[in-house]
């Protein structure tokens, strides 16, 4: 009694997963495998790498070549994998804390190199696994266990950060807009260089409860009401976009891919 999609790509003996009721991470994980399925990628030619955090549990459930690495270092390990096996489709599953706090340095350098990795950031605005500490994407004023009176930091926009660092594809989807999310991940995989998809997830257990955002359904409704597609946003006056956030393909500018450039230089030296 499970869909063929789940049966084909999950390690069935590891299901059901242990994410909390209403956690959006299951939806994002499904979007990732749906994208892989639609692209008809060979399972043995896909490597899924994660760091540490709620998001990073995902590869443990998935039946591909998978690697669960140290906190923040998924992109560093993935860089090594892509370098050694340029033919592999390397997909990194990371979280907001994992990729933009402890792994921030790896994120900007993976983007700067434009290495052929697709990173999907499961962004739930909080450190869920360790009990609800605020993360670099917790909105200003929102609470976490380490910000009981409200967070005074400004949040990172993961897509802008990656774009400024040199990523050739950035996009944002949400767990409410699951079909769009699948499409964005697909296009991210198809882009040859470094792609990042900011997948806005929901954490009803910590972020939701701490900030009185209601249950999973209320949090999904919030996403529905506050996300504006980038194409629609271009036609809207600025005041209508106040308090909203953009979804869709935010940036796509194909650039030379790192392992291809590396191969070119090694081949030219061999010839010389």
């Amino acid at each position: 009694m499970t869909s063929n999609l789940v049966k084909s790509y999950f390690r069935m003996d590891k299901l059901p997963h242990i994410w909390c009721p209403g956690c959006g991470h299951g939806i994002v994980t499904r979007a990732v495998i749906k994208a892989i399925d639609e692209l008809e990628l060979d399972k043995d030619k896909v490597c899924i790498v994660s760091g540490i955090g709620c998001s990073s549990r995902a590869p443990g459930y998935l039946d591909f070549n998978t690697l669960h690495t140290t906190h923040g270092r998924a992109l560093a390990f993935a860089t090594g994998i892509k370098h050694a096996n340029p033919d592999l489709e390397v997909i990194v599953i990371t979280g907001d804390g994992d990729c933009s706090a402890i792994g921030g340095n790896h994120l900007i350098h993976a983007a700067r190199r434009n290495i052929g990795i697709t990173a999907v950031a499961f962004n739930n605005n909080i450190y869920g696994m360790t009990g609800g500490q605020y993360s670099p994407t917790t909105p200003t004023g929102d609470k976490g266990t380490t910000a009981p009176y409200g967070n005074i930091d400004k949040g990172f926009d993961i897509c802008k950060l990656a774009q400024a660092a040199g990523a050739s594809y950035t996009a944002r989807g949400t767990v409410y807009h699951a079909q769009l999310l699948t499409r964005l991940i697909k296009n991210g995989i198809l882009n040859k260089g470094f792609s990042i998809i900011d997948a806005v997830s929901v954490c009803p257990t910590y972020y939701g409860r701490k900030n009185k955002k209601g249950d999973a359904v209320k949090m999904m409704e919030w996403l529905k009401d506050h996300a504006v597609n980038v194409a629609a946003a271009a036609k809207l006056p600025e005041e209508k976009l106040a308090g909203k956030f953009l979804i869709g393909e935010l940036y796509h500018n194909p650039q030379p891919e790192y392992t291809e450039e590396y191969k070119k230089i090694t081949e030219s030296l061999r010839r010389g």
Binding site: T2, S3, L5, V6, F10, L15, P16, H17, W19, G22, C23, G24, H25, G26, I27, R30, V175, Y176, A178, Q179, A216, M220
Partner: peptide
Amino acid sequence: GLCELRCPDYAIYL
């Protein structure tokens, strides 16, 4: 198919 797309627990499908 929206239920299947958005079920975080893969507990429903068409």
